[in-house]
Every structure is written in C-alpha cells, then in structure tokens.
C-alpha cells in the first residue's frame, strides 16, 4: 500500500478524525515503525510498546502536521523519539543486567556472553544511542545520509561521523564474521 500521491488527502482525513484514514496510515507504516523499534531495542516486547506509543503519538499530534517535512520524515522522527524515550525510561535497569554479566565468569555466563556477542543485533544494541539509531535508519530502512540528517535534525556530516564510529566498533566486535561473510554465509 503506497500513499505517495494521496498523502495530503489521507492526512487531511486523519486531521478530520477519519478512523479509516488512520487505519490506512497504520497499515502503510506499521512494518517500518515496528522494525525500527525492534532493531533499536533488540526486544520484541519493547518494540511492541514503542510501536504502540508511536501510533498513539501520531494520532494525537496529526493535527499539528503542517507538511513542512514529508509524512515519512515526520513519522520517523516520532518513532526515533519514542525509541530514545523508551531507553531513558528503562535505563535504570541496565546496571543490574551489567552487574549480572560482570559478576563472576563461570562457564555458563561465558557461554551466554559468547552467544550474545555472536549476534549482530546484540552487538548493535550495545552501541551508544546516537550511533545505534543511525545504524538502524541506515540498514533497516535503507535511508540516505540526507534523510537521516533530516530526521535527526543534524548535519549530514554528523550522520557520517556517527556511522563511521559505529562501523569501526562493529567491525572490531564482529570481526569473526568477516571470513564467514567472505564465504557468503553469516546466518
């Protein structure tokens, strides 16, 4: 389902409170919103929460949408902000998890750590928020530097810088996959 030519019409219908128009928006963007949330959070339950909050936010603020940016850019901004908000609200739990991982290195924990570290999603999840979000927008959504810059309200150079730093970290931490990728299989 593509909205392109009818975007304005659908948005105006949503602004009038047309339920069916909102359902159309939801169906069009649900996979994108959920994917960003999942790839950013690395957790299905958290992704569900973020996606729900995103669509409720979309619904409650559609009246303020003036078309200064594209609908996609606006929606991406909402989901990005929800991702960052969600991380802030759950950050207090993180030290406990880290404590658990750091406390002792028995064999089971070593195995668990190895499992996590083999998982690309897990490694991406350890990136700082500003680097992680550009990685998700770039590789989950395939957005250009310009599009990411517009969503994050920063310069194209900043996006490039964050991506470079994230690439460096990921190349180092996922170096074991380099050979496998050369052989054509990283699954």
């Amino acid at each position: 389902m593509v909205l392109d030519a009818n975007d304005r019409e659908v948005i105006e219908a949503c602004q009038r409170g047309d339920y069916d128009a909102f359902r159309l928006l939801f169906e069009t963007y649900k996979d994108r919103v959920y994917s960003i949330a999942l790839r950013y959070s690395g957790d299905e339950a958290a992704a569900m929460d973020i996606a729900q909050e995103t669509f409720l936010k979309l619904l409650s603020s559609i009246q303020s949408f003036r078309g200064d940016s594209s609908l996609e850019t606006w929606l991406y901004r909402i989901v990005v902000n929800r991702c960052l908000d969600h991380q802030r609200s759950s950050r207090k739990l993180m030290p406990f998890i880290q404590d658990f991982l750091d406390a002792g290195e028995n064999q089971l924990k070593k195995l668990l750590r190895a499992e996590v570290e083999n998982d690309v999603q897990g490694i991406v999840g350890k990136l700082p928020a500003d680097q992680r979000i550009v990685i998700v927008l770039r590789y989950t959504e395939g957005l250009s530097y310009e599009e990411i810059a517009a969503i994050l309200n920063c310069s194209k150079g900043t996006v490039a810088s964050r991506l470079n730093r994230a690439h460096s970290v990921l190349e180092r931490r996922l170096s074991h996959l380099r050979g496998a990728w050369g052989g054509g299989n990283v699954d």
Partner: peptide, 20 residues
C-alpha cells in the same frame, strides 16, 4: 565488509498481527 552484514542482519520485519 560490515555494511552488507548489517543490511542483511538488520533487515525490516513484519509487525505482529495484533499490533493494531
């Protein structure tokens, strides 16, 4: 080499049916 790995591993997924 990392770019195609990320593109492949972080691909878009379908939203759960009960999201609506």
């Amino acid at each position: 080499w990392i770019e195609p790995v990320l593109a492949r591993k972080l691909h878009r997924v379908a939203a759960p049916e009960d999201l609506w």
